[in-house]
Nucleic acid binder design. Structure first.
Lengths: 204, 204
DNA sequence: CGTGTTCCTGACCAATTGGTCAAACTATTT
DNA sequence: AAATAGTTTGACCAATTGGTCAGGAACACG
């Protein structure tokens, strides 16, 4: 899609712009973000932004496509041959770690999907669905073999997305309610989710 | 805040405008919504909108404050004297029912909170925190009495919000992945969440 | 050093958008 | 029916915003 950067300056400036755009888009949504904000955040002039990218849409699209892959890595890592409960709780922990380390990426996707995913619907019904269906089949195998409790695998995956991404997407709310405990709530969340899923998945 | 409507026409038109605004704000976020869109959706002219409301902000604010109360009703209904597991799974079901019946309201809040809740932060750190703390204390009492498993009550509430609102806020994604099953996924979700929380909360 | 290429900018533009206002139109009341 | 109060609108405005463009500055390289 986007022309491959060639010079050192291009590499550096494109990266700077994408970093600034991630900041601005994730905090304001596509429509709420302006090229001026992105330009200011990147320390560049607006016409200069448009020298590197064809337009606002192009910057946004580049962010979405280049980040989606990374975003799905934790699910890809779910290993059909591992210990079922350990694999799933491991997935939960990796996903929560993503929320801690990359909250802006999470909010970028959240903004997009809440508003109907107008620029991502193909990725969802295509590659994403394929990956989820594949991993859901693995989980279904485990529950049919009696290794984990019989829970619907698709909804199990949804619940993991929901509970883990909540800490990135609804960060202000979590902080507002857990007021004085600063950063510690991620560790508390890790412990809570570990217990929740261990208990729920245990076949006994 | 907003002047109390007096005439029949005022009642009807204010309601029409708020309904249209809910549609538009929930689908596009505050910044993404335009007065023209709301006016068109309401079947009124833009200046006429502004005869009934002081401005875009005022319409949005009215929606947020008037809907927040309803939104929290399910949690208020959590009864300290009821059966612990039944109370909590009942709360889960009521909350999921809200997602099914009022997805636009859910998305209105989701849009606001994902973007840092600039217009709602006081409600969060005030009345919302108070209510959550109160109900969390009730849940803590249950787990200290050994009636439910020892899970952090605040994070338990967060997980319930996350899992239930997910079906409204990320509706396109859920539909995109569960493609052919139309509306049935809400019933599947109800069953899944019932099992998930029953299993996780059971003290044994 | 000169020259071609890449990079950057100020000035500008058309479209969109939130909001105003005077005038016209419609209900309601007396 | 006249007077009053409430409702609606077309025309207009200033600010914002995505994007363009011609030319200048910096850089690479023979």
């Amino acid at each position: 899609m986007a022309a491959a950067p060639k010079t050192r300056i291009q590499m550096k400036n494109r990266a700077t712009i994408l970093e600034a755009a991630l900041e601005v888009f994730s905090a304001n949504g596509f429509r709420g973000a302006t090229l001026d904000q992105i330009a200011t955040a990147a320390g560049l002039s607006k016409p200069n932004l448009l020298y590197y990218f064809a337009g606002k849409e192009a910057i946004h699209a580049e962010l979405l496509t280049s980040l989606l892959d990374t975003w799905l890595d934790p699910l890809r890592a779910l290993n059909a041959n591992g210990d079922p409960i350990g694999e799933i709780t491991g997935y939960v922990q990796r996903k929560l770690e993503m929320s801690r380390a990359y909250p802006r990426e999470s909010r970028l996707f959240a903004n997009e999907i809440v508003q109907g995913a107008p620029r991502m619907i193909d990725e969802i019904t295509g590659p994403l669905k394929t990956l989820v269906d594949e991993k859901a089949a693995v989980i279904r195998g485990w529950s049919e073999a009696g290794q984990i409790a019989p829970l619907d695998p698709h909804h199990l995956i949804f619940s993991i997305w929901a509970t883990t991404q909540h800490y990135a997407d609804f960060d202000v709310q979590v902080r507002g309610i857990l007021r004085p405990d600063g950063e510690a709530h991620f560790d508390a969340a890790a412990g809570f989710l570990q217990s929740l899923y261990e208990r729920a998945l245990s076949p006994f």
